[in-house]
């Protein structure tokens, strides 16, 4: 008999014991370990996925921030460049204005100096000419010249306009017919008579003439009444000459600054070209 029934039962029991032992020592433990590790791996994968996602998001946000910063930096740089440019332009402009201003001031000062010098010169020349002419005329004045002066004065009175004559006559009447005649020399009686006659003829019979001498008149006659004045004097001529002389001098003075200003303009344009090159 190939089958030993005792052995069969013994083997069944052996097998069952082995099954229980292996279940305890092998399957349960190994399966548990596998499950745990799978769980761990799954957890780790999930974690990795999550971290990856986080990292991606973070990377995105960082990139965004970087881009923003870059933009900001560019803006700031542009702004700074713009500001610097403006500032430089302003500085150049200020400097140029300052230079112009200084130049203007300097030119003005120069002009004033020249003007005052010319004024002084003019005044001096006029005064000299004036005093020289006065002295010469005083030296030359004699009875005949005085008579001639009286004649010229009479001619002047007679040459007055009708309106003027009427106004003068009216004024004289209001002042009670008294008028003062100043002359640079002592009028002789003939002269006085001639003038009085002429005045009475022209301005009314009631005219009383009072004669005074005023050496400052140089050579001439002054008729004063109620604040009005009819005069003929060498002073006027001299003043006229002086006027003309000073006008001439002024014209010359004006021409010279013109020349200077033209030169200054040329210089300025050169400077501008240079600055623009350096910019």
């Amino acid at each position: 008999m190939l089958i030993n029934w005792f052995t069969v039962i013994a083997q069944i029991i052996n097998f069952l014991i082995l099954m229980v032992l292996l279940k305890i020592f092998l399957y349960d433990k190994i399966v548990k370990a596998i499950d745990e590790r799978e769980k761990k791996i799954a957890d780790r994968m999930e974690d990795a996925e999550r971290k990856n996602q986080e990292a991606e998001e973070r990377g995105k946000s960082l990139q965004e921030e970087k881009r923003r910063l870059e933009d900001k930096r560019k803006d700031m740089l542009e702004e700074a460049e713009h500001e610097a440019d403006e500032r430089r332009k302003k500085l150049i402009k200020d400097a140029r204005e300052e230079v112009d201003h200084r130049q203007g001031e300097w030119r003005e000062a120069l002009r004033r100096e020249k003007k005052s010098f010319l004024d002084n010169l003019r005044r001096m020349i006029a005064e000299r000419t004036f005093s020289l002419a006065g002295r010469v005329l005083q030296d030359l004045a004699d009875a005949e010249l005085q008579e001639r002066v009286a004649d010229v004065f009479i001619k002047r009175i007679k040459g007055m306009e009708e309106d003027e004559k009427k106004q003068a006559a009216k004024a004289i009447r209001e002042s009670g017919g008294r008028i003062v005649l100043q002359s640079s020399f002592d009028m002789d009686e003939t002269g006085k008579r001639k003038i009085t006659a002429a005045l009475r003829e022209e301005l009314g019979d009631e005219v009383e003439v009072e004669y005074e001498t005023d050496p400052e008149l140089l050579l001439g006659v002054n008729l004063k009444f109620r604040g009005r004045k009819i005069a003929w004097s060498l002073e006027y001529y001299l003043e006229d000459i002086m006027e003309q002389a000073s006008q001439l001098l002024e014209e010359q003075a004006r021409k010279e600054p013109d020349k200077q200003s033209v030169q200054a303009k040329e210089r300025q344009s050169e400077q501008q070209e240079q600055t623009s090159d350096s910019v």
């Binding site: 190939l2 089958i3 029934w5 052995t7 069969v8 083997q11 069944i12 052996n14 097998f15």
Partner: peptide, 15 residues
């Protein structure tokens, strides 16, 4: 080998 015994294989088959 115990499996070379018909008793063993019979026991396993019964199981």
């Amino acid at each position: 080998p115990p499996t070379a015994s018909l008793s063993t294989t019979a026991g396993l088959a019964v199981c």
